[in-house]
Amino acid sequence: MDSDLHARDVMTTDVETARPDDEVGDVLERLAKAEFNGFPIVDGEAVVGIVTQGDLVRLFRKKDRLVWIPIGVPPFSETLPYAVDFSLDEFDLGIDFVKNARKDVSEIMTRDVVTVEIDTPIEEVLAILAGEDRDINRVPVLDDGRLVGIITREDLLRALRTELLP
């Protein structure tokens, strides 16, 4: 496939972000309400990391089991659908949950973020999002080091469908 499409043509420009000093609990609550499952972490205009629901769920894993992650019962109000098998004798879990929820997101974010430039050909974006060496679902788009958009697998599929099936 040789297309004239570039990152700028398929990216979403309204990008929700988080800051490195945002608390894990706050980011988790925002993700629970979002229609996507990850945030680029920005310091000023520079992308310094990325955090996904998977990162947050792994933070609350206890002995290879997941537990309900409540959001909003002080300080959380909703529940994410990651749940399973929690025995009441694990009383330290509540303490661990509060401790982890108050951590800065910079402690758990992925720092080695794969990004593309605004003029990156769509074939390169496809290679990143479909690559097997890393499980990447979204790629931030930069213009001279400044975050200007994001491309998800869904964005890419939509663009390819339009390009291949006009």
Rank of each mutant, 00 (worst) to 15 (best):
I122E: 05
D9R: 06
P74E: 15
D2H: 09
N100D: 12
G149E: 00
R153D: 07
V42Y: 07
L88G: 08
F39V: 02
T13P: 04
T152H: 05
K63M: 13
V51P: 01
E29F: 11
V57Q: 03
L59V: 06
E29K: 06
L157A: 13
P20N: 05
T120D: 07
L5I: 13
V84F: 02
E124W: 04
R102S: 13
T17C: 13
F36L: 08
V10L: 11
L129P: 00
K103S: 07
V116E: 10
V125S: 04
S87R: 15
E78V: 15
G149Q: 01
F86M: 12
D133Y: 11
K99C: 02
S87G: 13
I150H: 04
V116C: 07
D89W: 14
V67P: 00
E163P: 08
T162P: 02
I108G: 03
R30N: 08
D112T: 13
D133M: 09
L147I: 01
D112L: 04
V10N: 06
R138T: 05
V24N: 07
V57D: 00
I136L: 02
R61F: 09
R19F: 07
I128P: 05
A46C: 12
I71V: 14
A7S: 12
D96F: 06
D55M: 05
T52N: 05
G149T: 01
T110G: 09
T12C: 12
G25R: 01
P75V: 05
N37F: 00
I69R: 00
L56I: 15
A46H: 07
A32T: 03
L142M: 10
A101W: 04
F86S: 06
P70E: 04
P74V: 14
L31H: 03
P20W: 10
E45L: 11
L142Y: 04
V48F: 07
M109K: 08
E124G: 13
D155H: 11
F76L: 13
T162M: 04
A46D: 15
G54I: 06
D21H: 04
I122C: 03
R19K: 11
A127W: 09
I41G: 00
I128S: 02
V57K: 01
T120H: 04
T110W: 03
E132T: 04
D64V: 12
L80I: 15
V113F: 03
K63W: 07
T115K: 08
D26N: 08
A7K: 07
R61Q: 10
T52K: 01
K103C: 11
F39G: 04
D143E: 14
V24T: 10
V10S: 08
D4N: 15
R161A: 14
D104Y: 15
L157H: 03
G149A: 08
L28N: 08
E29M: 05
L88T: 12
S77K: 11
L31Q: 05
R19E: 11
I150R: 00
E90Y: 07
P140T: 10
V141R: 00
P121M: 12
L5C: 09
D133C: 02
N100G: 06
